[in-house]
Nucleic acid binder design. Structure first.
Length: 424
RNA sequence: GUGAGCGUAGCCCAGUGGUCUAAGGCGUCAGGUUGUGGCCCUGAAGAUCGAGGGUUCAAAUCCCUCCGCUCACCCCA
């Protein structure tokens, strides 16, 4: 038997209610904040990701699904959403549009990782990017958008962490200071951190090992190394966040895993522990567009993992709207009635009424059981008597009331009761 | 990539060497008379006990290998 590949899963109908709910909120939020949808290909030139995410990041070195197609092009399943959006921005000359250009996506993301709670090899992200504007008010707006997204979903007790990791001008000095600080106490560091020291010193700050945390407490703080511009930018972002009443906390150990981030970074976390805590995260990437061959263009974005959102909706027992059900179930008795039922079902459907039609040869009892298990509120019964008179029997499964309705009037009657149900 | 736990019908699971020709519950299907559901009752279908190898007179049960799932590390959404 074939199985879905490791780290992937089918989203079955019981789950779909959550997904539709999240998508609807995402689409509505995008409308409110002025984002247009952008769908990019599932695969891209592998180089796009190596260039943008960073050659030495885990994503590029060991997590990408890279493959050669039949003409020898080196492609990769997208391991994140921002780079493709930037590529599209450049490819379609969007720098000629009024800035910022605001785009959102709901897309599958692929990373070859060991699966665990909230982490998959194929997962979906809702993300949005605002490109072409450096105003710190935009940082605050993007953070607000992310915050409102979770708020509108009904997920509570979230934490919002922000930090500034500086720009290419001031960050090197900070990294040097960090390296210097840690290199005098390598004996106390865990093995992972020893390699991190050479590869990505920022990561040392959020290591969970006790001895490493001791070293982190006394480590130089990023805020002290920000240049005048980055410092002012960060201060302004906070000013706007205050104005928006967002309950943010500065976390000077907040570091993001992708190389392209500059200045503002932020993350939203659900309550409780659990390894994959981030529900979503984002930040500024002021150098990325230029790195991809465009003019210097500031930008900021955010992405959240849909599976983690679903997980948290379930944990917090948020009730989501159910999936649509048939408006009516049609049961029939005998071959002649079945023929009428088939025609009737088609007519009703063409009138916009969702119909579940009994199948096969079943007793009326069995058909009603089926209707009940499908949670149908209305059942049409058609048998010999009804055919003779050109009528149907309409049974309300909740009240058990039955009425005889002419076949011609059935559609209208059903629509009316549908409206009543909605209003009632 | 590292570590730990686990793999018995669609789902939840009992069974820890012979009584297993594998139990129960949910779900599915049928029936409980002639055209009426939800409760209840009866019955049926559904399992190469994750795969392969080994130990043994005998393996779902013990051992090995592999695969998969779950959780954690790493990393990230």
């Amino acid at each position: 038997m074939y199985k879905a590949p490791r780290g992937t899963s089918d989203i079955l109908s019981e789950e779909q209610a959550y997904w539709r709910y999240i998508e609807a909120k995402a689409v509505d939020l995008s409308r409110l904040y002025g984002y247009q949808r952008l769908d990019t290909p599932v695969f891209e030139d592998a180089g796009l990701f190596a260039r943008s995410i960073g050659d030495n990041t885990d994503i590029v070195t060991k997590e990408m699904y890279t493959f050669e197609d039949r003409s020898g092009n080196l492609l990769a399943l997208r391991p994140e959403g921002t780079a493709p959006v930037c590529r599209a921005y450049l490819e379609h000359g969007m720098s000629n549009l009024p800035q910022p250009v605001k785009l959102y996506y709901l897309a599958a993301i692929f990373r070859y990782e060991r699966p665990q709670a909230g982490r998959y090899r194929q997962h979906y992200q809702f993300g949005f990017e605002a490109i072409g504007e450096s105003d710190p008010a935009l940082d605050a707006e993007v953070i607000d958008t992310a915050w409102q997204f979770f708020g509108s979903l009904g997920i509570k007790q979230l934490s919002l962490y922000i930090n500034s990791i500086g720009c290419k001008g001031c960050r090197p000095a900070y990294l040097d200071a960090l390296k210097q600080h840690y290199s005098t106490r390598t004996s106390k560091l865990c093995e992972d951190c020893k390699t991190r020291l050479g590869k990505n010193p920022l990561r040392l700050l959020d290591c969970k090992q006790v001895s490493c945390q001791d070293a982190a407490v006394s480590a130089p703080k990023g805020a002290d190394y920000l240049c005048a511009e980055c410092g002012a930018h960060f201060a302004a972002v906070q000013k706007y966040l205050h104005a928006l009443n967002l309950p943010f906390q500065i976390n000077n150990r907040l570091v993001r895993g992708l190389d392209y981030y500059t200045k503002t970074v932020f993350e939203i976390q659900p309550p409780g522990e659990g390894a994959q805590s981030a529900l979503g995260g984002g930040g500024r990437y002021d150098d990325l567009i230029e790195e991809l061959g465009g003019n210097p263009t500031p930008a900021i974005g955010f992405a959240s993992g849909m599976e983690r959102v679903v997980l948290n909706l379930k944990r917090q027992e948020v009730s989501v709207p159910g999936l649509p059900k048939p408006d009516v179930f049609i049961a029939y008795l005998g071959d002649e009635a079945k023929l009428e039922a088939v025609k009737l079902a088609s007519d009703l459907r063409q009138n916009g009424i969702a119909v579940a039609l009994a199948t096969g040869v079943r007793s009326l009892k069995s058909q009603l059981r089926q209707a009940d298990s499908l949670d149908n509120k209305q059942v049409v019964i058609i048998g010999e008597e009804e055919i003779k008179r050109g009528t149907v029997t309409l049974r309300n499964m909740v009240t058990k009331e039955q009425q005889v309705v002419s076949q011609a009037m059935l559609g209208e009657t059903l629509k009316q009761s549908h409206v009543r149900e909605k209003n009632g």
